[in-house]
Nucleic acid binder design. Structure first.
Lengths: 327, 327
DNA sequence: CTGAAAGCGCTTACAG
DNA sequence: CTGAAAGCGCTTACAG
């Protein structure tokens, strides 16, 4: 059916070894004249190398698996795009799997990726679940967590420092005259969200009244519902830092529906800084995570066996309109 | 290194054939006692089947490739999630590639997927470029376009009827009292966007003054820039249908920045109906594409060799706030 | 510089 | 119901 190396060898009057050397530019030299004949034969026959056969023999597939906690979340989606770009620079393909915040599904995706013999595994996990990246490492597959790592977790983690940026966000809102700055966290804190909440707690409590801690699921819907309740109950704070862009977008939607002016009545900031955050209404002021750098470091960790350097830039503040700037 | 079928066979005192029959539940029967021994050995050794070896021998990888014109566009992103769900029901993995609206990159991704021996290929393309799905079919790989097909294009296309829905959108805006209804199209029309524009043109011209046709790239940024210019120039229409959610989100952002009230000064609708459109500020009134049905049909086409049925539901109108409803 | 051959880990006729 | 063996399409020692 399909054209094979053996076909090309036959047509060019050489051996499969030589054809392989030509197709891969090595590892052995080939005489120029022979090379020409092989190339001509391959072109005539329309030869396309079978990567599966290569993978079985060479023990490397050129594919990396990416498991995402939630592909609908703009932060995870943007991270996936960054990872894809980093992989492409190394001529590596990406398989994706969406865990939907379900530990069982996450485990299942990892099993399937391991069976597919991926050359590496990147896990962008949510709270809970097993230490799947460590399982993969135990199976001989280089693996890393990005953004979040379960506790306890043995595999390396690539994550930016949230502390500095959240403190800057609190200071920024103070600069707009706010004394009470609330925080919208996840259903239970872990990983980066816990870091952000801690940083906020320390910064916001340092002076003035006890700050308000809000919680909801990581979804637009949940954040919108919570926001609608706060507005209806008259308990909406005047300044709020949302743990994620996803939640901030939900807040924006509900505030718009209820006619609550932002930033007039509510100054809002959030902590992912996805590309989406620049085109909300109003535009979100954010602490922007260095997604490309995180993806590059994770991929280098897996594919180049680079050590996890500490050189990741910290998330930094991007002031737009929702905090009260440019108002 | 890794545990193989042969290891399990040795441990259980059987042959690789029997182990294979047990692992795959067929195609030959195995005596219950033998099966137990095999299963026990596999569990003890922590055997994990090598899908690459299986793929080489069986000629099927259990992987489908998805090429996306633009992974940042919420419509394409939502479609990718639908495709992944449809594939998961068939226990099939997905590889993704992002063409970034570049025909050369699209071609490159397809080559790589073919080399990786995907069992099928789904192309969500943009204007221009080669008939890559037809190339894949010629190479023996079942392929289909979803949403858009290049001209001329030989491979099957899965796409919902846009005509009815756009007409309904025009009627809906008329019901809000609008006579002049503008349309924001792509840089040059083709495929579904051309269908939408045609439907608008016919419906909007049927009575009253000549309608306004606007154009910009499929990006939030381009739509925001255009919107800012229209507002500054005092030429912003009072009713507008955007070809895509992506563009509508850009319009919303620029309108918010300029203080142009929506729907008060501008009634806006758009034509994708992604999940994102429900959480913009204000919420977008849309014609919602049947993404899950489209994905399911495309996957059935490839994997079940099902004929492209005409039973796809048409995009339907979801009225939210941006058109003037609930105002 | 080139060729004949082994072997990656499976599945599947073929024989018993 | 079970086993010995061929073969999927490559890469890579090994010999020449």
């Amino acid at each position: 059916m399909a054209v094979t190396l053996a076909d090309v060898a036959r047509r060019s009057g050489t051996s499969t070894a030589v054809v392989s050397y030509v197709m891969n530019n090595g590892p052995r030299p080939v005489a120029p004249a022979t090379r020409e004949r092989v190339l001509a034969a391959a072109a005539e026959l329309g030869y396309r190398p079978n990567r599966i056969a290569r993978a079985l023999r060479a023990g490397t597939t050129g594919v990396v698996g990416l498991v995402l906690a939630d592909a609908s979340n703009p932060y995870f989606a943007a991270l996936a795009r960054s990872v894809e770009r980093a992989l492409e620079r190394r001529d590596t393909l990406m398989m994706t799997g969406n865990a939907g915040y379900l530990p069982g599904r996450q485990q299942h995706m990892v099993e399937r990726f391991l069976a597919a013999q991926v050359d590496g595994l990147i896990v962008v996990s949510a709270d809970g679940g097993a230490d799947v990246a460590a399982q993969a490492v135990a199976a001989g597959v280089p693996s890393a967590y990005v953004h979040h790592r379960p506790v306890p977790g043995q595999a390396p983690l690539v994550s930016a420092d949230n502390d500095v940026a959240v403190r800057a966000a609190v200071e920024h809102l103070r600069g707009h005259g706010h004394r009470r700055i609330a925080f919208l966290s996840g259903p239970h804190d872990a990983g980066p969200v816990a870091e952000r909440r801690d940083a906020w707690q320390r910064a916001a409590s340092s002076s003035g009244p006890e700050p308000l801690l809000l919680r909801c699921d990581y979804s637009r819907e949940a954040a919108a519902r919570l926001t609608a309740e706060l507005i209806a109950g008259g308990t909406m704070p005047r300044a709020l830092i949302a743990a994620t862009d996803e939640q901030a977008i939900g807040v924006l939607a509900a505030a718009s529906a209820a006619g609550l002016p932002i930033p007039g009545r509510l100054a809002l900031m959030s902590c992912d800084g996805t590309p989406d955050s620049a085109y909300t209404a109003p535009a979100l002021s954010v602490m922007e995570q260095p997604l490309d750098a995180m993806a590059e470091q994770a991929v280098a960790l897996l594919l180049d066996r680079a050590p996890a350097s500490a050189s990741l830039p910290a998330a930094h503040l991007v002031a737009r309109r929702s905090c009260g700037c440019d108002a």
